[in-house]
């Protein structure tokens, strides 16, 4: 996917230049703008078959400085992104060797279903873009963006969990027996900070149409938007981070309680654990609207008349 975007970018850039440049005036103009983008965002965890990606979303607001010459434009901006991504596991379990209060060895297992995690991030973004107009209305551009490490960076986990005990001598694991700590299925939730989030670069592409406006010094563009975010720094603690941390739960068969389990269970972000086999990449697809104000300095017409007379 990444390679295809690079190739597309390389091919599109000269094509846009060639197609756009001859059709428009060659004078340089300067614009200030504001772009607002709404996206659907999907986080890519790597090749783990156990995890599921569910669609999330977000919004981007960027201030732009843009130069036009001929049919070609170039802009540089500064803005903020708010991105919500979702991940899920169809099933998950952790198991431990234990002894019950009657002294019998067993495999104690926490079994999760409907495991859902939502990550939320806010970043500063510095985008650049080059593009061109094709005819009077159609435009296309490609660019890149530097995305800082998130300064809001949280996740929440919601799941259903039960605990069961599997004995070597029985056919099925034993469930719903609180005297043994085999808790019935119940909802659990947790929240925390995604540790693996880091600064990113993104490649972006945009194609759309210019919206006609009565004022000549104002332009508006609306287009489809595609972005692909790639983390720069590598997160190394993933291999040792469990998805669920049970270290604070009382495992003594004589004193353990469901309340203790409910209170002391700790969830980590899926992105920080071996379930994600690499630092999360993200693909964003959405709609971007940009409003531009022409700030080019021009001589006043009356000056021309003065020279005539």
């Amino acid at each position: 996917m990444k390679l295809r975007i690079y190739i597309l970018s390389v091919l599109l850039l000269p094509a846009m230049m060639l197609m756009a440049a001859p059709r428009a005036p060659q004078s340089l103009s300067h614009w200030l703008g504001l772009s607002v983008t709404g996206v659907e965002s999907n986080v890519l965890l790597g090749s783990s078959s156990a995890s599921l990606v569910k669609p999330g979303g977000g919004a981007q607001v960027h201030l732009l400085y843009e130069m036009h010459k001929g049919g070609v434009y170039f802009n540089l901006g500064l803005g903020a992104d708010y991105m919500v991504t979702n991940s899920a596991l169809e099933s998950y379990s952790d198991e431990f060797d234990r002894v019950d209060f009657m002294g019998e060895a067993l495999t104690y297992r926490y079994v999760y279903s409907d495991y859902q995690e939502q990550q939320r991030q806010v970043r500063l973004v510095v985008p650049i873009q080059i593009g061109g107009y094709f005819g009077d209305w159609v435009y296309a551009g490609i660019g890149a963006a530097f995305r800082t490490a998130p300064f809001i960076n949280s996740f929440t986990t919601n799941t259903r969990m039960l605990a069961e005990g599997e004995y070597d001598r029985f056919i099925q694991p034993i469930r719903n027996t609180e005297a043994y700590g085999y808790w019935p299925e119940a909802e659990y939730s947790g929240a925390g900070k995604v540790l693996s989030a880091t600064y990113e670069v993104a490649v972006e592409a945009e194609v759309g149409v210019r919206i006609p406006l009565p004022a000549k010094k104002v332009q508006m563009r609306v287009g489809a938007y595609l972005g692909y975010d790639m983390p720069i720094a590598k997160y190394n603690a993933r291999a040792t981070t469990p998805l669920v941390d049970y270290s604070a739960i009382d495992a003594n068969p004589y004193t353990q309680t469901w309340t203790n389990t409910q209170t002391n269970i700790r969830f980590n972000s899926m992105l920080d654990t071996p379930i994600a086999t690499r630092d999360a990449q993200r693909i964003r697809v959405g709609v971007r609207a940009t409003v531009l104000l022409d700030v080019t300095h021009t001589e006043k017409p009356c000056m021309c008349l003065r020279y005539i007379y």
């Binding site: 019950d100 009657m102 019998e104 004995y167 070597d168 001598r169 029985f170 056919i171 099925q172 034993i174 027996t177 005297a179 043994y180």
Partner: peptide, 21 residues
Amino acid sequence: IAQKDGIIALLNDSLNGGYQF
């Protein structure tokens, strides 16, 4: 059939004569 405090359970095929149910 084996029983523990609060549990009555069937032994698995390695202990019950080879039966699976």
